[in-house]
Structures are given as C-alpha cells and as structure tokens.
C-alpha cells in the first residue's frame, strides 16, 4: 500500500488527537478544552469522507458541513480568548457574516453538492485576522514573558500556517472554479501536517501553569 500526502496528513491528525486526549489535564480548565473533541471530530470527518467517496462517489456535502463547523469552532475559540471588547464584537459580526454567506451560497446560489470554496476562503481570512488580533493582545500583555509555555500560542501558530499557506490555492479555486487543481492539494496537506506538528509540540511542551 502506497501512502500519499492525504494519508500521511490523516495519520498525523489521528496522532495529534490521541496526544491531545493524553495531555487533556493541562488545559481542561481553558477554552481549549473542546480542542480534542474537535480533533477527534476532524479525524472522523476525514475518514468518513474517504468512505463516502468510495461508496457514494461524492463527499462534497459532507466536507461542506465539516469545514463549516471547523471554521465556526476556531472563530468561537478566539472569541473566548480575545479580551478587547471591540475586537470581540467585530469577530461576532464577522462570524455572522460568514455563516449567512455560507448558508445563502448553499441554499440559494449553489447547492450542498458544490464545494463552498469561496465562503471557506472568507472564513479562513477571518480566522487569520483574529489569530493575529489575539497574538497582538498576547504580546502586549505579561504573557509575552513565557509565550512558548502557553498551549494557545502553539495552536495559534498552527492555525496560522494551516490557513495562510493554502490561501493562494483557495483564492485561485474561488476565481477559476472549473480549473483542475487536484495536483495542488499537496499544499493543503503540507499545511495540515505543519499545523499538526505545531499542535503536538504545544500539547507536549506547554505548561499547565500557564493558562
């Protein structure tokens, strides 16, 4: 059996989820407590998507639901972490705009069977903006003294890599929807692997003391 980048990325995802559960006590009292549930969910999402592709020849609707939940999860996570009230409000508005746009696209403009690349690109950009907003807050506080000890710092780095690296791919897919880009998915898988490695590093090396 030959492993491709997609399989390796899935393998890393499963390992990350397992390590996340093992180090759960470190962050169970922080907003990150839902992260292992999210990672387990993502692992199930990927594997069910593979099965669906074999059985039903299409998994687009399944991905549409999955990625939508993923974007909302991260927006919700940073909503809990960001302290600046204006940024919080702005995040809430962005989350609503994204979700409304996603639903309009799915139910009115397109359908569940069309991959919602444009709303997902917008969602990804929103996440990038709020990760930066959070990191900026973190660097302006006393947390800067022990940044590397905070799990959320490593999670934020991972999320940044995951959302920024494939951005050109997503933008191109949004603009040239009929263009064949399946070869380029390797960029997405590499971004996934980098994110999982940063998550794993955070789960292992972050300290329980810094929440």
């Amino acid at each position: 059996m030959r492993l491709n980048f997609g399989d390796i990325s899935n393998l890393f995802l499963v390992i990350t989820a397992v390590i996340a559960w093992f180090s759960y006590t470190k962050y169970k009292s922080t907003p990150l407590k839902y992260l292992p549930i999210y990672l387990t969910y993502a692992a199930i999402l990927e594997n069910v998507a593979n099965i669906l592709l074999t059985v039903a020849q299409s998994n687009t609707w399944w991905y549409n639901i999955g990625i939508n939940i993923e974007i909302l999860f991260f927006l919700h996570l940073y909503y809990n972490y960001i302290k600046n009230k204006k940024n919080k409000k702005f995040l809430l508005i962005c989350a609503i705009i994204y979700e409304v746009y996603f639903l309009i696209n799915v139910f009115i403009l397109e359908s569940w069977n069309d991959y919602q690349v444009f709303p997902f690109t917008v969602g990804g950009i929103f996440i990038i903006i709020f990760v930066f907003a959070f990191l900026l807050e973190m660097f302006q506080s006393s947390k800067i003294l022990h940044t590397q000890k905070y799990l959320i710092f490593w999670i934020s780095l991972g999320v940044l890599f995951y959302n920024i690296i494939p951005l050109p791919l997503f933008v191109t897919r949004s603009i040239l929807s009929n263009y064949e880009l399946s070869q380029m998915m390797v960029i997405q898988y590499l971004a996934n692997i980098i994110m999982y490695l940063l998550f794993i590093y955070g789960f292992i090396w972050s300290s329980m003391k810094y929440k």
Binding site: I164, I165, L167, P168, T172, Y179, L181, Q183, I187
Partner: peptide, 20 residues
C-alpha cells in the same frame, strides 16, 4: 508537469510560508 497558474500558486504558497 505544472502549468503557469499552478507554478504561481506553488510560488505564492512558498512565499507566504517563508514570510510566516
């Protein structure tokens, strides 16, 4: 083999990665 668009995507992804 990559066409021009794919090369642009690859290069810009790599640039973004490097910047990060």
């Amino acid at each position: 083999e990559f066409d021009e668009i794919q090369i642009v995507i690859l290069v810009s992804s790599f640039v973004l990665f490097t910047i990060l």
